[in-house]
Amino acid sequence: MKKTNWTVWVSNLSLPILLIASVVTFALLNDKFLTQINLTNILVQNMHITVLSTAVLILMIIGGIDLSIGFQISVVAVLIARTIKEGILPIWAAIVLGILVCMVLALFNGAMSRILKSHTMIVSLGTMAVFQGLSFLLSQSKTYGGLPKEYQYIAQYRIGGWLPTSAVITLVLVLVVGWFLKRTYLGRHLYAVGDNPEAARLAGLNVWRIKYLAYLIAGALVGVTAVLLSSRTGSADSGMGPDLTFTGITACVLAGVALKGGEGTLWKVVVAVFVLGVLANGMQLVGLGTYPQYIAKGAIMLGSLYLSNRSQKAA
């Protein structure tokens, strides 16, 4: 019994331990690593990824994986940038429009998987192509740079000269989503529907209404990701989203979110994002190239799978 507790404890805290270990390692290897400016860098480099991973988590809790979120980001970022650049809407309205459009795109994914009776991952392979085309049509393969300062402030402003606004926005969102998932009954319903849809249906839950809710929330978060990202870069183009899809899914898998649905803890996902972020930043600082980074990332994934499987056996 005691041994079981110990194993569960280790696998629960394996990510924070990993994070601390990598921070200590990089701090020893490079004296710039623990400077305020670099810590701020790590923060701002991972805020949009954190928000995106939160969206991925919600989708994975209901038992889905969405490969199209990357191009959702592209569509929304380009849409907002173009609307602002061409003076069609004021900045705030463009942002609201962008986030609403993203919710519609996400809902479209959900509706498609219901109508086609297919797994969301397969459906999203199709919708990914649709969104890709949509984003290139919108952007006409152009990069919309030079977004106004007011827009850049959303992610780049430093409150009191040091606290990045993107961090504040992300923190608020993470807290709200965390509260929603853990404390509200709707959050509980998401887990129920993902864990066992048939049991949820027979328990009187309206499975698809709950899934649609999840898609809407995830869509809104992906929309916010697009805003944070384009505000951070001061530009938007069709190629900006796709790379992030895999990063978000990687963070969730690293955090032990079950592919079968019904499980997943938000704080672990956030820590996982930072494990990956610190790794990328630190390895760059100490002068290790990209390829060792790939290997380290893969090794950490495999290691965390080992730990989480061990705890499942122990439970």
Partner: peptide
């Protein structure tokens, strides 16, 4: 196992899941 309960979830969670609102 497949229709009646959520086996990976706690007892209290299962008892209340239909009645949360």
């Amino acid at each position: 196992k497949w229709q009646g309960c959520f086996v990976d979830k706690p007892v209290a969670w299962n008892i209340t899941v239909s009645n949360l609102p």
